[in-house]
Amino acid sequence: MPSISREEVAHLARLARLDLAPDELDHLAGQLDQILGAVAQVTEVAADDIPPTSHALPLTNVYRDDEPRPCLPAESVLAAAPAAEDGRFRVPQILGEEA
């Protein structure tokens, strides 16, 4: 049965870009441990020679004709943005000051 430490939970939260409060980390550590213990049952199944399924039904790649189509008007897309400037999404700084 896997066991997951509070430090690992904090690391996962950083990977997932989730700013979690200390009490949330504590609570989640216990719950994730419990859930992982339950889902680890899949490892009991002998399946070495079984191919994995990523998708319910077999899929083939689909191409469409290379013809221009109208896209959404920029105004209607930017209307839903948290911030926009000069017809573009305005975002916080991406690089640190020292970069």
Binding site: L12, A16, L32, V39, V42, V45, A47, T53
Partner: peptide, 24 residues
């Protein structure tokens, strides 16, 4: 968080990969 864990290196084959086989 669970998905991030299941997809992280070191756990991928044991969890996500195995779950996909169970799906089959």
């Amino acid at each position: 968080m669970l998905g991030t864990y299941a997809l992280s290196s070191g756990y991928y084959d044991a969890y996500y990969g195995q779950a996909q086989k169970v799906r089959t």
